[in-house]
Write a protein that binds this DNA or RNA. Sequence first.
DNA 1: GGTAACCGGGCGGATTCCGCCCTGATTAGG
DNA 2: CCTAATCAGGGCGGAATCCGCCCGGTTACC
Lengths: 319, 319
Amino acid sequence: MSSSTPRILALLELLQSRPGATGPQLAESLGVDQRTLRRYMRQLDDLGITVQATRGRRGGYRLRPGFKLPPLLFTGPEAVALSVALLAARRIGVSAGDGASATAEAKLRRVVPADVAELTAQLGDALDFTLPETAATAPPVEVLTVFGEAVARHRRVHFGYRTHDGATGEREFEPYRLVFHSGRWYVVGRDVTRAALRNLRVDRVAGPRLTDVSFTPPEGFDPAAHLLGSLAAVPYRHDVEVLLDLDAAAARDRIPRWAGTVVSTGAGTVLRARAEDLSGMARILAGLGCRFTVRRPAGLRDEVRALAGRLMESADGVT
Amino acid sequence: MSSSTPRILALLELLQSRPGATGPQLAESLGVDQRTLRRYMRQLDDLGITVQATRGRRGGYRLRPGFKLPPLLFTGPEAVALSVALLAARRIGVSAGDGASATAEAKLRRVVPADVAELTAQLGDALDFTLPETAATAPPVEVLTVFGEAVARHRRVHFGYRTHDGATGEREFEPYRLVFHSGRWYVVGRDVTRAALRNLRVDRVAGPRLTDVSFTPPEGFDPAAHLLGSLAAVPYRHDVEVLLDLDAAAARDRIPRWAGTVVSTGAGTVLRARAEDLSGMARILAGLGCRFTVRRPAGLRDEVRALAGRLMESADGVT
DNA sequence: GGTAACCGGGCGGATTCCGCCCTGATTAGG
DNA sequence: CCTAATCAGGGCGGAATCCGCCCGGTTACC
């Protein structure tokens, strides 16, 4: 009266929960002969689930990640965690509401019991309250993975790109690194046709395709530093340096990372940034609330002064 | 030479991917008799996977979420999406690095092929760059679910709580709603022993336990509005109203949501907020960069004036 | 009432499954 | 070098089950 299916599923669960178990152990857990266990292993293999077996003393079985993903057995809380994570990720723009994220979400939703679904919805509502609903600019995971693979394998990518003014065109690109930055995904690398470093927005990419052409990324390339610089540098006219009367930790807390970098020097906490728009920088400085000294550029002092003037007038009720 | 296990797994996959399929369709897809299909259904049922069958014309089978979660079959991109979402959620403090999120992540990691794992790691690095590494204050999903269930079923919760000054004590609480707010989870409700509305930080809760005591939540309770108010109101002394020379959308974009609410009125865009710290509010106003008129309180005008003065001095290079 | 779906009993033959033998190969450790 | 522990798999025979094909029944929609 016992089919083998439940036992094979149980075996899968055992393998997932207790990697490295030995044959006799597993056989005993399942209540079957070792020979039968081996037959089950063979079946799993036929299912596309590769089970790695190390022989000899100290041997054992463990799942080896293969091309096809084995069925995953989650608990209720885990399902909740996954669903909420997907929701949160979508809210902050890490993933899109279409493509793989959506199908994964749908799969979860379909199997989750009603009470767990309710929990998820409730936690989702809680997120709704505080996380801003981002515009639908997140690229689907499928597009991201193409770039991810290209970065890892040093392959050129070919794709269509829509610039900010709406013009579209084809690009050949050597991606150095992916960056998620203030709600958007960027890919940093070299535009082959234009022979220049570029930061492209991944959500403006259409139909990316891995090519066979490989490239060698630049030597001694510090991704984080370079990216910060290159992102901040995109269109900049002013090199800003401000001495802050604030400790570095507090400053980092109040200054958005895209605005610039905060460093501690002998003279105190220094903000270095590159800016196109000095009035924006003035607003950031005003938002700090601390005293500061503008080292350069001089124009920033004027902006701060102007902002202070406007503030004063606002405070005095002048319209 | 064919076992039934692969076909049962295939059936599961079919049910997950194409809910509502009819018996004949499924039988044909699997290449088995309808009778056999029914036997498979019975087996799934025995596995704890409830399959809902609607009879009659227009009938069909679909998975009905049951207590035990059936094995989930994800594709590679879906696994990536899930892993990245978990990472992102942890970064912004939605979930913790322990408990269900961690085990779910571990399960995913164990089954994911090497190249996909590499992609995930890379996308995670990209997140690392821009999302702040939050302190480990996120509560495990298990704790959240207790409160979620309590909210849904109107049940009191009993737990230990550590106040901000380190004192610990037991609490009996009637939770009205969960809120995720600027990187932290809160539960809003009524503290039974103190007979007062409270907002508690979920990460300071220890060992929450659902009780059998039910309660009736207050009538006409608008969660969003009330929460905003009560969160902003926790320790507040000042009622702030400022008329902004800025359109509402831009204002909402620049003002953090915890700071207050932006509404459009006939007179223009108005920011209403409650604040403990007027200088903080002044900094926010300064960061807007626009002109504004402080309607109340008068003290805020002084703060703005003081800030403007400091700014002016900073611009003039006075230390 | 007819049709299209689900439901399940029963039956008989083919198939598979499973436990128990066996031999081998591989690895770690003494 | 030899032993112990482990995986790998062939073969066999009996038992279990699986499966296709009957069947009549029920439920719901047209």
